[in-house]
Design a protein around this nucleic acid. Structure first.
Lengths: 299, 299
DNA sequence: TAAGGTTACGGCGATCGTAACGATC
DNA sequence: GATCGTTACGATCGCCGTAACCTTA
């Protein structure tokens, strides 16, 4: 057993068990890959892959179990490299931040600017995806830090830090009936609604709010992205329910936003990263910056 | 970086950073070890060991941190091997059981006999040590399973399973004054006491019992081993406080045992193993056997 | 001066690349 | 027949072992 065989197994999983693709990724010829896999399987004494003819099509139960250990080794190996690089120079490096559109646009700008001032040598790769994908990116090493509101809580492999709390707001064009008077679930439900897709940005809390209500929301459009919602609200399609911090009084001066904190439970945005993943110093400071920005922000 | 370098780091820690001893353990010449370490340190870019002249005397902070990852890799590597062997033949193998004398002698015989019947191909290496050492043995891979009463609870790397509860008993020769009447803390404290050493077999519960009492125990002899205590009780040195299950009415017919459950809190014996350590099937069945034996036993 | 660590060098073996072959869609 | 995987073989590079040298208790 050696580290390149371990690496091979990991890569094979990424390439849908294609030896030729794995060879390409690892910058060696395919025959080498073929032989290394044979050697490893011989050492283990049992096949790790189900084969149709010569093609690999899936992993055996043993293979799947061993893959867990492969992941652990890979993680530790990466940690050693990160630790070493971080020790030599903790001001340079790369940070993969995965988050949703709403966070990227409405929360991250300030902390990222401040972080850049302190760490001009750190490259930030920002990656937008659904909360579900974010978690997957953490697990596959494609992201170091994820920032989001949904999901994240139950995964035992994740370290989760509270970031900030916020609430939803209703937005609509001026002269809309909702501009006047108290807003109730019933009144809200009387209009066509535009809000986030399932699994995004506190959508689950909207569900919660209406679960015990007699009213039912008529969600005519759902999007991952606040700006899409705003666009269609401006076109008069209905009332938008968005994250409070995504309303900008200047830019959105043609719209009216009204607080819904009395109707919809507060949402909590969290910062998550893999427990087993060594975060370089600047990564830890990045999180500090997020928390600081969160503390300064009060909705 | 490769697996033998990782292995080298692990071995170096075991040999007090001696290159020559490490070479011997790894069955290669010392010069090879020297070079591999240099190569690895070069790759990391910083020294991992503090040196006095050419001698290695300690690890640098970076080295210590990296050693954590080395342990993780080693653990995973061993798991792969165990998984493979277990898959090929889950009836043969080796089980390292670490426990205290009391458990080994008074609790384990029955479950071990039954286990042997089902798994005649499994070798059991039993290792007696203090609870503190037991945990250390788990961490260093010298034991797969530990069975003991003390410590074990707070270590987050350990999976801990409840095994059984028991209480202490006082033992003394026939015709001893304690043979008659109620036993109280005060009466007990009036005699010289022989019991377990600190950190052994529920000793902490004895401490707890007397902590809030006006009486203080006069412990004139403490031992890791129930049989030692019995021996000196027989010689008339005083009253023994031992684990209830360590009194055998047949063998110890020259002694009298009296229950102390009303005076000393119950002790809980636990089964522990490393969360990250893959236990072969027979190891899992060994634990089942322990739990079964514990259930049948009622004190 | 003995014991432990480093450096130099030669030899062996592991692993790669080329290439021809085999199988599968 | 194009793509993917296997087998054969020669070449290379990494790693070990021998051995001489250096350093410190």
């Amino acid at each position: 057993m050696n580290l390149s065989q371990i690496e091979l197994l990991r890569v094979l999983q990424e390439t849908n068990f294609s030896l030729s693709q794995a060879a390409e990724k690892m910058h060696i010829v395919q025959s080498a890959v073929s032989r290394q896999l044979q050697l490893f399987e011989a050492e283990v004494g049992s096949p790790l892959f189900e084969r149709r003819g010569k093609k690999l099509i899936a992993m055996t139960p043993l293979g799947l179990r061993i893959m867990q250990e492969v992941e652990a080794i890979n993680q530790a190996k990466n940690n050693i490299q990160t630790l070493a690089a971080d020790y030599l120079d903790s001001n340079h490096g790369i940070l993969h931040v995965a988050t949703t559109h709403t966070q990227a646009k409405y929360f991250l700008p300030k902390p990222i600017l401040r972080f850049r001032e302190k760490y001009p040598g750190v490259r930030i790769y920002m990656d937008e995806a659904s909360p579900e994908q974010l978690i997957n990116k953490l697990h596959t090493g494609k992201a170091d830090i994820a920032i989001c509101t949904e999901k994240v809580a139950d995964d035992t492999y994740l370290a989760v830090k509270h970031c900030y709390e916020w609430h939803h707001a209703a937005i609509f064009p001026k002269n809309h009936p909702l501009a006047e008077g108290e807003i109730s679930l019933e009144r809200l439900a009387a209009f066509p609604i535009l809000t986030y897709s399932f699994g995004f940005t506190g959508r689950s809390n909207i569900e919660t709010a209406f679960k015990d209500s007699v009213s039912e929301l008529d969600i005519i459009l759902s999007a991952a992205d606040t700006d899409v919602i705003k666009t269609y609200v401006r076109l008069g399609l209905g009332v938008g329910i968005i994250a409070g911090m995504a309303f900008d009084a200047m830019i959105d001066s043609d719209l009216i936003a009204r607080d819904l904190s009395h109707l919809i439970p507060r949402s909590k945005t969290k910062i998550a990263y893999l427990k087993n993943n060594y975060l370089p110093l600047y990564g830890q400071h990045f999180i500090d910056e997020l928390v600081l920005a969160a503390d300064e922000m009060r909705f």
